[in-house]
């Protein structure tokens, strides 16, 4: 087990390194750099001005050198202008060049500076993550119990009327991406045209003060899309367990149907959905981006859209590191959990 986890961590590390390199490469292509120069400097810069701006701000070095700078392996760039004033990657505004550290990157705990938020990346990302964490917590609290209940109810008697109804419901939810269900929910429950107005169509106010009224629609929108998939997995696993020999034995011994389901079947039927729930995280991340944009909830997903739209390189890199870590850690947990939950593997 220890070796397995160590190996997984190695792969994780390699994946994160490769992915950040790809992100770094794509965000640092020449046209993107010109975009940054025009965004930060002046929109009407001429070609030579752009080149000199890039030179002055350290963007003119080879890409790999700058990647190493971002990692903190190479020394940060410095630039001395005509008047002898020294600027550099690691020199904060108003700091004397001699006092600044020579390296500042991920290894030194410095995640860089966001040009869009005009603030340190680390603080911003943490703040946004907390907001999205709040959203995800409620999504999980709504989605998992609902999905498991639907799956177990439809799987315990395959082919019954209840099964048909619930299966149709879960197929419909898997066919409804967040931007469709979100739009429909806003149209029905929040618009003045229909007039129900039960909920609010934006969740901006939920960032400070989440109430049922302003937070339920985004939570429901994300949960529904994931719910269908989990409940179908639970149903498949439940129907398989219900046809097993030991269930038949229990029924023939005269154990009541309720007891068979709750005491005998449920525990075995829930192993497979556990891994599925864990593997849903990367998908939920997509949903988070869509829903945060749709409901204007300024969390992690919203920050991703803004960072990508403005080619905010260091913010984008931080966001990709975090999201890749989330994906890989959940995969790891799901693997370990599967081994732990399944006695057939655990004991052998």
């Amino acid at each position: 087990m220890g070796r397995f986890i160590l190996q997984r961590f190695g792969v994780m590390f390699l994946t994160a390194l490769a992915l950040t390199l790809i992100v770094f490469f794509l965000t640092n292509l020449q046209p993107n750099l010109e975009k940054i120069a025009k965004f930060q400097g002046n929109a009407r810069m001429t070609e030579p001005e752009v080149v000199s701006w890039l030179e002055k701000n350290g963007y003119a070095q080879p890409m790999l050198t700058r990647y190493a700078e971002w990692l903190g392996l190479a020394k940060g760039w410095t630039h001395t202008d005509d008047e002898g004033k020294v600027t550099g990657r690691c020199i904060d505004h108003g700091q004397a060049p001699a006092e600044a550290p020579s390296r500042c990157g991920l290894l030194q705990g410095d995640w860089g500076y966001s040009i869009f938020f005009e603030a340190d990346v680390a603080g911003k990302v943490l703040g946004k993550l907390a907001l999205t964490g709040k959203l995800m917590l409620w999504v999980m609290l709504l989605m998992i119990p609902m999905a498991l209940i639907i799956g177990v109810l439809s799987g315990m008697r395959e082919g019954s009327k209840l099964d048909r109804v619930l299966s149709t419901f879960s197929i419909v939810t898997t066919a409804t991406p967040e931007y469709v269900s979100g739009v429909i929910f806003i149209a029905v429950f929040a618009s003045s045209a229909v007039g129900l107005k039960w909920f609010k169509g934006t969740a901006t106010s939920a960032m400070e003060n989440a109430t049922f009224e302003n937070f339920f629609l985004p939570v429901l929108t994300i949960s529904l899309y994931g719910m269908g998939y989990i409940s179908r997995m639970t149903r498949a696993s439940m129907t398989e367990v219900m046809t097993a020999q030991y269930i038949r034995t229990a029924r023939l011994k005269g154990v009541s149907f309720y007891n068979v389901v709750v005491k005998h079947a449920l525990r075995n039927a829930l192993i497979a959905p556990f891994t599925v729930i864990m593997l849903q995280f990367p998908w939920l991340l997509n949903g988070v981006v869509i829903v945060e944009t749709l409901f204007n909830y300024k969390g992690f997903g919203w920050a991703l859209v803004q960072a990508a739209g403005n080619n905010d390189i260091e913010l984008l890199l931080a966001i990709s590191v975090v999201s890749v870590m989330v994906v890989l850690v959940t995969q790891l947990i799901s693997d370990i959990g599967y081994v732990y939950l399944n006695p057939r593997i655990r004991i052998s």
């Binding site: 994946t15 490769a18 992915l19 992100v23 794509l26 965000t27 990367p282 991340l285 997509n286 981006v289 869509i290 997903g301 991703l304 859209v305 990508a308 739209g309 984008l316 966001i319 990709s320 999201s323 890749v324 994906v327 890989l328």
Partner: peptide, 15 residues
């Protein structure tokens, strides 16, 4: 797995 670990929307935004 490398491509799968990428959030789809980030990839779209980059490409």
């Amino acid at each position: 797995n490398l491509i799968l670990a990428f959030p789809v929307i980030l990839l779209f935004y980059l490409l």
